[in-house]
Simulated scan of single mutants.
Amino acid sequence: MSRLGRRLLAEFVGTALLVAVVVGSGIMAQNLAPGQIGLQLLANSTATVFGLAVLILILGPVSGAHFNPVVSLADWWQARQRGTGLSSRELGGYVLAQALGAIGGCLLANAMFAVPAISWSSTERTGAAVWLGEIVATAGLILVIFALTRTGRAAAAPVAVAAYIGAAYWFTSSTSFANPAVTLGRAFSDTFAGIAPISVPGFVLAQLAGGVIGFLLVQGLFGRPGADVPEAVSGEPTASR
């Protein structure tokens, strides 16, 4: 398999497993603690923190462990400034792999819990306050990731990124999706972690806005990147070389 092929496979598998963790733990929490929303969210967020940390640790050396189109877009834009990093062709491949992986991961979680493979979510998540929550969640995520890479601390990404997402589950009104691919995938499950298809466009637009804000914050705090700045999340992929 080519170097790019391995990177795309890592993004597909990583995003699929991330969504399987999010949706699967949501279904399990819903089954074990019916009606207890706070306990369900605690279980869901805890599983997501541990699952995301492990996935970044394992797949980061292959693809950078983006698992998120906003992260890939930010890395592509940074690459335009420093002359290296994701190309436009690689960006398209990453986004497609992430979207397909997210859908596949949701279908897998549904299958594991004997839920219909495609059961469109009926949970509407909408309104200015919720969209603001997604903007904050995504901006913070981009800031965490790129602050680490810009200061040579990418090795801390598995812990720092997972910890931020876990915290943002609780301090944002949207429970921190912060990821267009994951948002798309979660529309395929009418369970605790689902989002109604009608709510997906608003979330994605808020996430893109948050990505821009987060990247501008990184630029303001750390300036323009030099040619030696590694890729997000966890450094320049090496395993595929």
Rank of each mutant, 00 (worst) to 15 (best):
Gly38Asp: 12
Gly166Ser: 10
Ala20Arg: 04
Val54Trp: 05
Thr238Ile: 04
Ala167Gly: 15
Phe12Leu: 14
Ala20Glu: 07
Phe171Glu: 11
Arg125Pro: 04
Leu217Gln: 02
Asn44Phe: 15
Leu59Glu: 02
Leu39Pro: 06
Ile37Ser: 15
Ala16Asn: 05
Val161Pro: 01
Ala79Val: 12
Ala79His: 12
Trp131Ser: 10
Gly60Ser: 06
Val23Asp: 00
Val212Met: 07
Ala20Trp: 07
Arg224Lys: 13
Asn44Thr: 14
Ala47Arg: 08
Ala209Met: 10
Ile142Ser: 02
Ala178Glu: 03
Thr46Ala: 15
Ala163Tyr: 07
Gln81Glu: 10
Val71Pro: 06
Ser234Pro: 00
Ala129Met: 09
Ala79Phe: 11
Gly194Gln: 07
Pro34Gln: 11
Phe215Pro: 02
Ala99Val: 13
Ala232Met: 13
Ala196His: 09
Ile165Asp: 00
Val95Tyr: 00
Ile37Thr: 15
Gly105His: 07
Ala20Phe: 08
Ala147Ile: 08
Val182Arg: 13
Gln36Leu: 14
Gly210Asn: 02
Gln40Gly: 15
Arg241His: 15
Val19Pro: 03
Gln219Tyr: 08
Trp76Lys: 13
Ala102Pro: 02
Phe12Cys: 05
Asp228Ser: 11
Tyr164Ala: 01
Ala99Tyr: 06
Gly214His: 01
Leu216Gly: 07
Ala33His: 15
Ile58Gln: 12
Ala109Ile: 04
Ala160Ser: 11
Asn68Tyr: 00
Val23Lys: 05
Ile142Pro: 01
Ala193Ile: 10
Leu184Tyr: 00
Val144Tyr: 01
Gly60Val: 01
Leu57Gly: 06
Ala181Gly: 03
Phe222Ile: 09
Leu143Glu: 11
Gly85Cys: 11
Gly140Asn: 05
Arg186His: 05
Leu42His: 07
Thr149Ile: 14
Pro237Ala: 07
Ala109Trp: 00
Val218Asp: 03
Val161His: 01
Leu148Phe: 08
Phe67Tyr: 05
Trp76Ile: 12
Ala111Met: 09
Thr183Phe: 01
Ala74Arg: 11
Thr183Gln: 04
Ala187Met: 06
Val204Ser: 05
Ala117Met: 12
Ser176Tyr: 04
Ile58Gly: 11
Ala178Gly: 06
Leu52Lys: 02
Ser173Cys: 01
Gly105Asp: 01
Leu216His: 03
Pro197Tyr: 05
Glu134Cys: 10
Cys106His: 04
Ala147Val: 13
Ala114Arg: 10
Phe171Cys: 13
Thr126Cys: 08
Ala47His: 13
Gln78Thr: 12
Leu108Tyr: 01
Val212Tyr: 00
Thr123Lys: 12
Leu148Tyr: 10
Val70Trp: 01
Leu41Pro: 09
Ala97Trp: 02
Gln98Arg: 01
